[in-house]
């Protein structure tokens, strides 16, 4: 079970949560799980065998390291992806707060009937 397979499995679990749960908040949790699994996928792609953390030591005079480091680019990309995930979750929760104030229910079957 390599990390890539595990992250795809978690992605499928998140997708199952979004598709088949009736409560709106559980759907948001499923979407957050999907975003988290993509973060796991990217970070596990950037792993190199016996690699150190991509931080330069204090006092080194050259900017190009000579030891093996893990790939820092997916880590930087995932910072952006985490920010986007937070924004989507915040927006969805704001919409849920207003939907609950109007309809007094969070069940998607009742909401689609009432519309």
């Amino acid at each position: 079970m390599t990390p890539i397979n595990i992250s795809l499995l978690v992605f499928m679990i998140g997708l199952y949560g979004v598709m088949s749960k009736n409560n709106l908040i559980k759907k948001i949790i499923g979407l957050t799980i999907m975003n988290g699994s993509i973060v796991l996928f990217f970070i596990s792609i950037g792993y190199r065998e016996a690699g150190l953390a991509p931080i330069l030591e204090k006092g080194t005079t050259d900017a190009i390291p000579t030891t093996i480091l893990v790939d820092p680019l997916p880590q930087a990309l995932m910072l952006t992806a985490i920010v986007i995930g937070i924004s989507i979750t915040a927006l969805a929760l704001a919409l849920i707060v207003r939907i609950y104030a109007k309809y007094k229910t969070l069940d998607i079957q009742q909401l689609s009937k009432e519309r």
Binding site: V18, L24, K27, I88, L95, I96, I99, K102, S112, R115
Partner: peptide
């Protein structure tokens, strides 16, 4: 709100 939430998911 409902249409926007549907689209968001």
């Amino acid at each position: 709100l409902w249409a926007s939430f549907n689209y968001l998911i």
